[in-house]
Design a protein around this nucleic acid. Sequence first.
DNA 1: GTCTATATGGGGATAGAC
DNA 2: GTCTATCCCCATATAGAC
Lengths: 219, 219
Amino acid sequence: MTVTEKTRPAATEPVASVRNRILDVAQELFSELGYSAASTRAIAQAAGVNLAQLHYHFGAKRDLFKAAYLRGAVQVTEARSKALAEARTAHAEGPIPLEVLVRSFVTPFMLAGNTPAGRATMRMHARLHTEPDDISKEVLSTVYDETTLAYVTEFQKVLPHISHETLCWRLYFMMGAYRYTLLRTGRLEAMSGGACDSGDFDRAVAEIVPFLCAGLSAP
Amino acid sequence: MTVTEKTRPAATEPVASVRNRILDVAQELFSELGYSAASTRAIAQAAGVNLAQLHYHFGAKRDLFKAAYLRGAVQVTEARSKALAEARTAHAEGPIPLEVLVRSFVTPFMLAGNTPAGRATMRMHARLHTEPDDISKEVLSTVYDETTLAYVTEFQKVLPHISHETLCWRLYFMMGAYRYTLLRTGRLEAMSGGACDSGDFDRAVAEIVPFLCAGLSAP
DNA sequence: GTCTATATGGGGATAGAC
DNA sequence: GTCTATCCCCATATAGAC
């Protein structure tokens, strides 16, 4: 304590927390407003820092977006591919049962919605395809490509009688269905006259799994 | 020709075409870039008019967006509800067969993709939920609410053994699946290694109909 | 109805002191 | 690492001449 070295002790901790605060807010605002409508000024202000700090830590807006997106997505994607790996070893002899497979794919993102940070991750994910082209393409191939291909392989194993092309289409529809659910558009409430709640993600999982299993294995 | 009246003869035609040109371009740019990223300047320039003209004809950006969106959506929605009405009269005695119902719901938007203007309509529709909240809510309830409720009723008739809530969830998943398809995200191509083409909307319809029928009527 | 010019504010990004 | 001040551009919207 007496000898204060240049900047090392207790200087790294707060820095990390500043970065985290910025990322939290960035996730929140990007997920709510989208890339273009969420301004760096608004993010800085909500995080309690100033613009210069934001640029010091993350560089350009693009890069901040990528960092914010990836922080959430990497986490969830790891959960997903871990779930796949476990299912793989649990059914070493044959194919993974369809329901298990669907559930392992859908659950990590859908149940993320039960925490506030997870909700932001979810929404950023769901709306990623409507962000500026170059950003979304870059980010997507960074995180998803490998895992997705592994899933295609596994699905083909449980559904060997379905042609590869048809299978791909169906998996594409699956992605659409669950991503739309993550968005919480309010259409479910409008349609059901308030009987259903699109924020009830446990229910959403319970409903979507049989729907997808049936759709994927349709004749 | 000799007597030139104030502004009436042949003055209404070009005006309409200016408005149409603006709407065409607005649809195109909004559908490609989204509300925030598509600037009124860019729209005016691409339409070959200046900013003041754009405001003269459509008022604020919000209103231009609504006009552009509604022009396409109203058309497609009318096709959809006409298809429903026809199916209704063709099966006066009992419920409309599931496949007919699904097809009538999905086809108007999906086959719109075969024309350039329709493609823009499609994409605006698909990404509407990621536009600023107030705009999307307002527009959605203007065009879709009635038709959607009519569909819920019809689906319940063909699928009487499914609870109302579960049915709503499934219809919600259906919306997600087909809207995502309209977006053309490139994920289909990535997943299939280029074997499938997400721009082939006839194929998309052929694939999605059995998928949805199976999913909706899952046990 | 159409144009030019401009008002007014917000955006991303950086310089340079501390 | 943090701050203030500022550059410079682009945004939406309107005024007012023609």
